[in-house]
């Protein structure tokens, strides 16, 4: 999920950086005082979630939670995820600093898209249907992220196409877990704090 330095061609790195800056700028513009604590909390959640590795078969997986973050934050997911990714790269070497833009776009853009597509539906749904929609958001954002990782690698040269295919396949277990976790979280939030998603973006 985190691409390292040197794996991508310059044009992909630059393109990713430009898109990331645009997304962050737009996200910051939409950030208002009331929501800053929530953005900070979800940024911290993403930072921590990537550190908890659960062994599955020969490899290990960790939660990414970008679907949930997208539902909760909308466009402000960009700055929230950027800061978490920056600190992960600086402290743990997860992903490179130069490809930070690409990584931010790959993780934040699917989050934003899922948020835009599904949030309003979740607000208008009873808890059970909201949970299913949450699951779709969780799985959908992982699938999109995997596709975007694959595309970033494929754009950088033919040799990376097998690697990109592998990235897609290896994310299937994450996709399932992420769908379940996001569904459960959305169900809880809709039951406990029904206005959570309706206040998400105004």
């Amino acid at each position: 999920m985190h691409i390292v330095d040197g794996a991508l061609s310059d044009s992909v790195v630059i393109g990713g950086a430009v898109l990331a800056v645009a997304g962050i700028a737009y996200g910051l513009k939409r950030m208002d005082l009331d929501r800053i604590p929530q953005i900070g909390m979800l940024s911290a959640t993403f930072f921590i979630a990537s550190l908890i590795h659960v062994p599955v078969g020969p490899s290990s997986l960790h939660l990414i939670l970008n679907g949930l973050i997208g539902l909760a934050l909308g466009w402000t997911a960009f700055p929230a995820l950027f800061i978490a990714l920056l600190l992960q790269a600086a402290f743990f070497g997860y992903g490179g600093l130069i490809v930070l833009g690409v990584n931010t776009v790959n993780i934040a853009l699917p989050a934003v898209l899922m948020g835009l597509l599904l949030r309003q539906l979740i607000v208008n749904s009873p808890p059970k249907r909201a949970a299913i929609l949450g699951g779709i958001a969780g799985a959908g954002s992982i699938a999109l992220t995997a596709v975007m990782v694959g595309v970033s690698l494929a754009l950088s040269g033919d040799a990376f196409i097998p690697a990109a295919k592998l990235a897609l396949l290896s994310h299937i277990p994450v996709l399932v877990v992420e769908a379940l976790v996001t569904a459960a979280t959305v169900y809880l939030l809709v039951r406990v704090k029904p206005d959570f998603f309706s206040h998400a973006e105004r």
Partner: peptide
């Protein structure tokens, strides 16, 4: 590793604290 996690969380809360202060 544990210290880095704590440090990272500190950074995140600090940065959003600054953001909240600027927004206010």
């Amino acid at each position: 590793m544990f210290r880095d996690i704590a440090g990272g969380l500190g950074f995140i809360f600090g940065l959003f604290g600054v953001a909240a202060w600027m927004a206010s």
